[in-house]
Amino acid sequence: MLLKDLNKNEEAVVKAVLCNVAVKKRLFNLGLTEGVKVRVIGFSPFFEPVEITFNNTFLAVGKSIAEKIEVE
């Protein structure tokens, strides 16, 4: 399953981050890596980006990135 397919309030564990190196590095620095448990807070009024929370961090990621993060 992909991050963008999650519904509001749903929780999942990140399985793989399939973005390119630069984005992956950035997400890593923010703490979003394999094995992190994320929860979807909600979607922007215009359907994307999606706001997620993990480890007390709140992060908004665009659709193009959300569809490259595998979760389960």
Partner: peptide, 11 residues
């Protein structure tokens, strides 16, 4: 362009 939006939301 779609640079991929990543933004931390401060508390």
């Amino acid at each position: 362009t779609d640079s991929g939006f990543i933004l931390e939301m401060p508390v």
